[in-house]
Design a protein around this nucleic acid. Sequence first.
RNA 1: GCUCCGGUAGUAUAGUCCGGUCAAGUAUUUCGGCCUUUCGAGCCGAAGACCCGGGUCCGAAUCCCGGCCGGAGCACCA
Length: 502
Amino acid sequence: MKEKVEEEKHLPPLPNVEKYPMVVTRFSPNPDCVIHLGSARAIILCYEYAKMYRGKFIVRFEDTDPKVKRPVLAFYDRIREDLAWLGCKPDEEYIQSDRIPIYYEYAEKMLADGNAYVCTCESEIFRKRILQNKPCNCRIQPPEKHLARWQRMLAGDFKQGEVVVRVKTDLNHPNPAVRDWPALRLIDIEKYPHPRVGTKYRVWPLYNLACGVDDHLMGVSHIIRGKEHLTNQVRQEYMYRHLGWKYPDAIHYGRLKITGAILSKSKIVQGMREGLYNDWDDPRLATFAALRRRGFLPAAIKKMIIDVGPKTSDVTLSWENLNAYNRKILDPTSDRYFFVQEPIELTVKDIPRKFTVSLRLHPEHPERGSREYSIAPEGEEGLARFWVARRDIDASKIGTTIRLMELFNINIRKANVYSAEASFSSESYEDAKKAKAQLIHWVPVGEDMPCNIIMPDATVVEGIAEKACLRLKPGDIIQFERFGFVRIDRGNGKIVAYYSQK
RNA sequence: GCUCCGGUAGUAUAGUCCGGUCAAGUAUUUCGGCCUUUCGAGCCGAAGACCCGGGUCCGAAUCCCGGCCGGAGCACCA
């Protein structure tokens, strides 16, 4: 017997693992929005590498901007939920707004050592000087003066925008963006209170200080983040030198996009504000919440991200790609049911006797069970009525034979937009095969229940599902035969489902 | 403009460091066929790629140079 072992793709090894006592990675979201597929690379790579080396995976909320990228309380939990759903449970969690004194401590040390300074220059003036590779007037002052300014900064003697603490770098660095970068700034805390700590701090660290200090203090061995942070590494390396630290190994992967989906937090937030989307899990969004609601499984996302790997080039995935990963998992595990979209009533006459059929819930797995329907013809004409999809019975099909799956074959007699008539032709599947009859699905009138399906573009497909769907619960993922995979969103007499994929 | 990355089929990826075994592998996609009481799955087959131009070399997807294209950064954002 031949065995086909599918090869699992593995992540390439992490560099310099032996240099560290333990592999430690971190995912550091700003809780200013829900997270989406664009973050999947960071999360999954960090988590998987930590697991691969029996290390530690940290989540760190980077909420140090109460003004421009204001954190929102609700998103801390939403992000935790998404991580849990993805199966990437962190070993440790930190919130930067709880750690402000720590950042102050290192800022002060750099100030005292003459490695940082409190700059009161207007940004325009500073810019001009720095572009000429010249120090500003503040930079050349002695540490004592800066320490004094620092105290005044903390005490509130300055206003927002008047001062900034800068870390000294090389004024001749070829990239002007690296020269003497800002480390802490002042926030008008009355106007922009922090959602977690309120007005407790008026001096807030910027990304490179907070992130740089934390990565060292938390023992992060491998920084895995987007390549937009490439220059931040260069900046932070100066600070690490000032503090006598060794910079971790860093991997900067490229941007991940998926065709058609908006993966920009600001656009998502804007769309939400404008009422463009119904919620954070609107099917048009590629947020994890939306993917979850649509029936995409974490395992599929995980596998896709691992296959993509940590390359530095950008990738634009297509939905077909995600669908393929998802379908591989869904197909063997999803029960099958009938759903008739745009139903019309089909009356079949000349049915010779009562038929009882048993329909398997999964064609390849009879052990999953089945559901039964009885078709008992009524009256002299032997009538029975069914719901069938309009597109299966259109005017062009008059005269042809089609088969009601697992039931019997019929001839189409009449058809209009509201209803159709047909007559019993024969029972056997062989006949249908011989006639090359189209196989269509059906729901007996009276054995039906309403069912709406929310499509990926947020439009709604109305239809009728078979009564057996009564047993379905929210969260179940099934396949409506000849329609596609859907995730049940609401049950209870009337089904609302989200379309997942073909 | 400046600084820095990257460019293998429609999409994604392997190979690139250490040139030959790559007339380029895999998944998906598309198209045939088989099978199947789903337009799903499965099986078989086919289609489809090394950005361009030079150079080095017996030999280049792989090394070098130039160009083109794409991306990122150049915030008192993260």
